[in-house]
Design a protein around this nucleic acid. Structure first.
Length: 959
RNA sequence: GGGCGAUUAGCUCAGCUGGUUAGAGCGCAUGCCUCACAUGCAUGAGGUCACAGGUUCGAGUCCUGUAUCGCCCACCA
């Protein structure tokens, strides 16, 4: 056994230890009937991902759960993998291409896709390597990618099945369109920028109010003398008025109430526009009346659907006017705007023009103002899918932690919108949809974005010429034509990740893995993707598997910097987990992340906090060094001294009070850690162990053991056994949180003491598969805890006084202790050497408490002067003068008793009062039912509390 | 506008179903290189638990309101 260096250096152990775990196959889980499965699927990071603190927190939590369950004996499987992340990945590769001066169009679709795969092979596993640095114990043999063959098959299978059941349909949708790049943009690709614009007020004459307009197409050219009876609307984009098909007002708006249901006339075009009512209209803004252009505005689009309005597309791909009166045809959108302003002015339709700042989407690539645009897309009808997913959560089949997310989830699910699943990019799962050019001729289906005017909003019977098929059909089933083209679009990234919990286990094949590990147990993720991912997985789980994908969802907080901002590159406030690992070690990173976050609360991080984790690891390292050295010194090494694995309990009769105390504290720690982990209170589990190990074990027990070691052979051996047992057990408890340092120390400790053999023959001996500690109720020892606390109280009191009086260590003052309890007195007498050593004292006399403490010559009197009562106190002789000090711990025992007694008395009295009232027939007969119920409830409550207090009191009195 | 969260020591935060004297880490002060650890040990200072009401024998904890900060969603036509 090599000597451990006095400082823990994580760099020396982490990478090689991880490799060893992996080589030993410790991350692998086999499906089998022998053990209960416990499964987690990773939220697949983007292949383009670079590890950030969010990942670090997310994966640390998953790893804690999986390591904990693995040690508990579950067949614990953590499925890793990555997401193809359509747009993000395509962008990365496009950027690389741009450096060569090429665009993806220059390569063509197939070559570009090949290029993306190349990129993926080369860089796509970066994030997975980084997860390994975190210590994640994923089963890497099962690593999946959302565009794997198997997963792609799953995607197609689901699409086909949804289509067969009428849950997939084609319809129109508003997308962001860049007229310059000629491409559709995702919302995140069209960031909104504060822009100074103008708000134009336009007057629409009311029909039948004596204006020139008397109905559709009745007046042409537009009248130059509008009636004073008009409705005024406001817009920032006047050119879109050419596509208006309604005017909307708020249903409760008094100004317009009378107009609802009547019509206005669209100036210039002279179209009849119904005046409709909708809550979405803001009465305060502008004039309170809104022009509705369903084909050119997202909100208007929704209104258009809801009120079944006409959708008129008035622009071409490059944002020139089309489908409009001759005078405007072909004009650029801004030229059209200028011309319209002039024409409206001339026609007397123009009201005020106000300055107006608003947020406008701009193309992330060229900065052009994007144009919302109607476009044919594919949708999933969600409502039928949502029903079982709502029920599962309402029935508690799936639970959210913290519970408050349940409401958020249900609220969204109950108002669910259909899901637009088609994306106009190249990287992704291509839609299994084919068009027959012959059948589809003239319907415009093959051509995207040429001003489609079909506002389908519900499932439609399969249109002619559309074939949904697993692979390309040889000919059109309707007309027999062989001229078939696959849809150009790919599916939304989430369309593959919503299948993740079962597609990674082999679905649609019926695999052993699927039978064993599905449904999974816990899903760990952040709040941002509850809708995108969590909700959809639940729906897919019920649709495909008829069972929930998981039973618990743990939502952790967002990692923020110290000022509360989200960490992001552009803000420059990133703390890179890999830097922290390098500087402080992985365990420090994990410990700090976990302790920094209470359940579901956001995490605020500053770099200094990681030092605490590093220090803790180092503390453990040195505690183990000490325990090893004593084990060697007492001949405990080279096995034999400890007989039965895991670690036998030392013989109770040889145990001292401190031995019993630390063992008792250990049992409580085990229970607390278990309870915390069950409730997802990872911070509590970690700090419980920190407090126990640092303060109870190192600060007190370790020091005590040094003294016990010199007291005699027997106590030395016992003490060493206890040291080994407590430390070894604690390391196991801490392993899920701090895997590396615990494994390292556990290896040294078990090898030196020879007490740990693999549970299964032939299995590698690793803390990863060592049994999870169980609390031994027999070792819970309230008496020992009480007595040792007395000792701590005395030692602390003496140390405090010494510090205040500046008594140097070398001068070892004599002390007289006065204790009122006989048990405490005999304990002190038996542990005199302990007191002497821990408080650096000379002689220690123990006597009964006196009626009143002597005052003569005292420099420091007790503040408390409850004369006549026995006082627990200590008198220390400093420079020939006796200094008296109250013993806080001892006095409190008495104080607490009387306080408790008082409470018990109070409660008893109250209880009998309530009982009397409940027995009173008049009360129960006459009082309202709720009052009686309330009284009963109160009765039960007090009874429970009383019992708690009485038990505590009885315990105190028994000592 | 809708929803949610927070407000506890100088700083960053714990405090689960109400019940001993409200805790930790960092920082600060004092004394210690005590043979596991100076990434350490001992001791200490520092809190009207945002504010105002209420429920209760008892409130940091539960209820109502106010103020401030923050997040998510929708969005100013």
């Amino acid at each position: 056994m090599t000597e451990l260096p006095p400082q823990y250096n994580p760099q020396d152990v982490e990478e090689s230890r991880y490799k060893w775990w992996d080589e030993q196959g410790l991350f692998h889980a086999d499906p089998g009937p022998k053990r209960t499965p416990y499964t987690i699927v990773i939220p697949p990071p983007n292949v383009t991902g670079i590890l950030h603190m969010g990942h670090a927190l997310n994966n640390t939590i998953q790893d804690i759960l999986i390591r904990w369950r693995r040690m508990q004996g579950f067949s614990a499987l953590w499925v890793p993998g990555t997401d193809h992340a359509g747009i993000a990945t395509q962008n990365v590769v496009e950027k690389a291409l741009a450096k060569e001066g090429k665009r993806r169009q220059d390569l063509g679709r197939d070559a570009f896709i090949r290029r993306v795969w190349q990129w993926k092979e080369q860089y796509g596993n970066t994030i997975l390597y980084q997860l390994k640095r975190l210590g994640s114990s994923c089963d890497w043999r099962r690593t999946r990618f959302t565009m794997d063959e198997g997963l792609s098959e799953a995607v197609t299978a689901v699409f086909l099945e949804l289509y067969r059941k009428g849950l997939i349909y084609r319809g129109s949708y508003i997308i962001n369109w860049c007229p310059r790049c000629q491409t559709a943009l995702a919302d995140e690709e069209a960031p909104r920028q504060q822009t100074q614009g103008k708000l134009y007020h336009i007057r629409y004459p009311l029909e039948g109010e004596g204006s020139g307009a008397k109905g559709e197409g009745a007046v042409s050219p537009p009248t130059l003398r509008p009636s004073p009876a008009f409705i005024e609307v406001a817009t920032t984009r006047p050119e879109t008025m050419l596509g208006d098909t309604a005017i909307a007002v708020h249903p409760k708006d008094k100004r317009y109430k009378a107009l609802i249901g009547s019509y206005a006339i669209l100036p210039i075009v002279n179209r009849r526009l119904p005046i409709i009512a909708d809550d979405a209209v803001d009465r305060e803004f502008g004039t309170g009346a809104v022009k509705v252009t369903p084909a050119h505005d997202p909100v208007d689009f929704q209104l258009g659907r809801k009120h079944k309005l006409e959708f008129i597309n008035v622009m071409t791909d490059d944002a020139r006017m089309a489908n409009v009166p001759e005078a405007y045809k072909g004009l650029d959108r801004y030229d059209c705007r200028s011309k319209l302003i002039v024409d409206l002015e001339q026609g007397g339709f123009l009201g005020a023009i106000d300055e107006h700042a608003h947020n406008v989407g701009h193309c992330y690539r060229c900065g052009t103002v994007v144009e919302p645009r109607l476009s044919p897309q594919w949708f999933v009808k969600m409502e039928p899918l949502a029903r079982p997913a709502i029920k599962a959560v309402k029935d508690g089949v799936i639970t959210f932690h913290p519970a408050r997310w349940t409401k958020v989830y249900l609220n969204w699910m109950e108002n669910i919108q259909d899901w637009c699943i088609s994306r106009q990019i190249w990287w992704g799962h291509r839609l299994p949809v084919y068009y027959c050019s012959k059948c589809a001729r003239g319907s415009g289906l093959g051509a995207r974005g040429k001003g489609s005017q079909l506002p389908a909003s519900s499932p439609q019977p399969p249109a002619e010429g559309i074939i949904v098929s697993k692979s390309k059909p040889t000919k059109c089933p309707t007309c027999g034509s062989t001229d078939l083209k696959q849809d150009e679009d790919v599916l939304d990234t989430w369309f593959s990740s919503w299948l993740w919990p079962f597609s990674t286990l082999g679905w649609p094949e019926k695999t052993k893995d699927l039978a064993c590990f599905y449904p999974t147990n816990t899903l760990v993720t952040a709040q941002e993707i509850i809708f995108f991912w969590v909700a959809r997985m639940i729906m897919a789980g019920y649709f495909c598997m008829k069972r929930p994908p998981f039973t618990a969802v743990y939502i952790h907080g967002t990692v923020r910097d110290i000022t509360g901002k989200k960490m992001s590159k552009s803000l420059g406030n990133i703390i890179d987990p890999l830097d922290i690992i390098k500087q402080y070690g992985t365990d420090a990173l994990r410990y700090t992340l976990v302790t920094a976050t209470a359940i579901g609360q956001d995490v605020f991080l500053s770099e200094e906090r990681f030092a605490a984790g590093r220090n803790f690891a180092n503390k453990l390292w040195n505690a183990t060094r000490f325990v090893l050295s004593t084990a060697r010194g007492s001949g405990l090494g080279a096995r034999g001294s400890i007989d039965q694995p895991p670690v036998p309990s030392p013989q109770p009769r040889t145990l001292s009070v401190p031995d019993r105390w630390i063992l008792s504290r250990l049992q409580r720690t085990i229970e607390r850690v278990n309870g915390s982990l069950e409730k997802f209170l990872f911070n509590e589990a970690a700090t419980t162990l920190y407090d126990f190990l640092w303060h109870d074990f190192c600060d007190w027990y370790l020091e005590v053991s040094k003294i016990q070691a010199v007291a005699g052979r027997q106590s030395q051996v016992t003490s060493n056994r206890v040291l080994v047992q407590v430390l070894e057990t604690s390391l196991r408890l801490l392993h899920p949180t701090m895997p590396f340092v615990t494994e390292e120390l556990w290896q040294h400790l078990t090898r030196a003491t020879g007490d740990m053999r693999p549970a299964t023959k032939g299995a590698p001996s690793s803390i990863m598969v060592a049994p999870w500690p169980k609390a031994d109720k027999k070792l819970v020892d309230a008496e020992a805890e009480r007595l040792f606390e007395q000792l701590q109280g005395v030692v602390t009191a003496i140390r405090t006084t010494r510090a205040e009086l500046n008594v140097p260590l070398e001068s070892r003052p004599a002390v007289r202790l006065a204790a009122s309890q006989a048990a405490v007195r005999s304990f002190f007498e038996a542990h005199r050497p302990l007191l002497q050593a821990l408080a650096a004292l000379g002689t220690v006399d123990v006597g009964a408490a006196r009626e009143s403490p002597p005052r003569a010559g005292s420099r420091r009197a007790t503040k408390d002067s409850g004369a006549g009562k026995a006082k627990d106190a200590a008198a220390m002789v400093v420079d020939g003068v006796e200094v008296f000090m109250p013993l806080a711990g001892l006095i409190d025992a008495g104080k607490e008793r009387s306080r408790l007694q008082q409470r018990v008395d109070e409660l008893t009295k109250q209880l009998s009062g309530i009982e009397a009232r409940l027995k009173d027939a008049q009360f129960t007969a006459k009082a309202p039912k709720e009052v009686v119920d309330q009284t009963k409830e109160r009765h039960a409550q007090i009874q429970e509390t009383l019992k708690k207090f009485s038990d505590h009191l009885a315990l105190l009195q028994s000592m």
